[in-house]
C-alpha cells in the first residue's frame, strides 16, 4: 500500500516503476512502427497487438508512478515531458526496428527476459507491481510463442532469412548483458522483496535463448562485447531521435488535454 510506505521507500519504488514504464513505452513505440509496414497484413495486426500490450503496460506502470509521485505529474508527464537523458530504459528496447529479422530476434531476447522477470515480479511485496506483472505475464507468454516461432521460421526458412537472423543475433547480442545488471536502486528493491534480482535470471535466460537459437540452427555469439548504460540514462543516439518524434505534438503545446 502506497499509504504505508515511508517517504524514502516511496521514492525508490517510484523510480523503479518509472524504469519499467520506460522499458515498455520504448519497445512498444518501436513495434508500433511496423503498423502498415509489415511483410503481410496478418503481421501488421499481430505486431500492433504486441505493441498495444506494451503501451498498455507502460500506462499501468506510469499510472502507478502517478499515484506514488502524488504531485500532479500524470502518466503522460512521464512519457512525454522527460528527455532522453532522464529515460532509464534498457538499451535493447530503444534499438531501431531494423528489418523483420532484427525485430523478431530482439523480441525473442526481450520476451524470454520478460518471462523470467515477470515470474518473479508477480511475488513482489508491492501489490500493485505484482498485479501488473500478473496481467503482463499472460501477454508475454503470447509474445514469446510468436517470437519463438518466428525465429524458427527465419533460422530454418531460406538462406537469406537465416543470414538476416544470424546478423540480427550478432548485432543485438552485446546489448543483452545489461539485462542482468543490478544498480543500487535495483539492489535495494530486490532486498526489500519489491523488485527482482535480475542477476538470478541470467542462467535461465541463457539456457532458454540458447536452446531456441540452436533449434533455429543459429549460432550463439561469444560474449565479446557489452554495451551498457540505459538505467543511468546513457543512451544510444536512437532514443533521442525516437523521443523527439514521439513527444513533438505534446510538447508543442504543453500542459493541455489531448
Amino acid at each position: 500500500m502506497v499509504s504505508d510506505m515511508n517517504e524514502e521507500t516511496k521514492q525508490a519504488v517510484l523510480n523503479y516503476t518509472i524504469r519499467l514504464g520506460d522499458d515498455a513505452v520504448v519497445i512498444g513505440h518501436r513495434i508500433a512502427e511496423w503498423c502498415r509496414n509489415a511483410p503481410f497484413l496478418e503481421e501488421d495486426l499481430a505486431l500492433s497487438n504486441v505493441a498495444l500490450d506494451f503501451i498498455g503496460r507502460a500506462r499501468m506502470f506510469y499510472g502507478y508512478a502517478e499515484e506514488l509521485a502524488d504531485d500532479g505529474r500524470k502518466e503522460d508527464y512521464f512519457a512525454y515531458m522527460r528527455d532522453h537523458r532522464e529515460y532509464q530504459n534498457l538499451l535493447i528496447m530503444e534499438l531501431p526496428r531494423g528489418d523483420f529479422a532484427y525485430t523478431m530476434v530482439r523480441q525473442l531476447l526481450v520476451d524470454v527476459f520478460n518471462l523470467y522477470y515477470l515470474e518473479q515480479l508477480i511475488s513482489s511485496t508491492d501489490e500493485t507491481l505484482a498485479a501488473i506483472a500478473g496481467k503482463a505475464i499472460k501477454e508475454t507468454r503470447y509474445h514469446l510463442r510468436r517470437s519463438h516461432e518466428w525465429v524458427l521460421r527465419l533460422g530454418l526458412g531460406t538462406d537469406e532469412s537465416k543470414i538476416r537472423a544470424q546478423k540480427a543475433v550478432d548485432d543485438i547480442w552485446g546489448f543483452t548483458h545489461e539485462l542482468f545488471d543490478l544498480d543500487e536502486l535495483e539492489q535495494q528493491m530486490a532486498d526489500a522483496g519489491i523488485g527482482v534480482d535480475n542477476r538470478s535470471l541470467q542462467q535461465d535466460w541463457s539456457a532458454k535463448v540458447k536452446s531456441i537459437l540452436e533449434e533455429a540452427s543459429l549460432i550463439v555469439p561469444e560474449d565479446s562485447w557489452k554495451v551498457k548504460g540505459g538505467r543511468e540514462g546513457y543512451h544510444t543516439e536512437y532514443l533521442g531521435q525516437m523521443l523527439n518524434e514521439m513527444q513533438c505534438v505534446h510538447r508543442a503545446n504543453p500542459g493541455l488535454e489531448w
Partner: peptide, 11 residues
C-alpha cells in the same frame, strides 16, 4: 501513430 500526443490516444 509515432506522434500521438498522449499514451491513451496512441493506443
Amino acid at each position: 501513430i509515432t506522434r500521438a500526443p498522449s499514451l491513451r490516444r496512441k493506443a
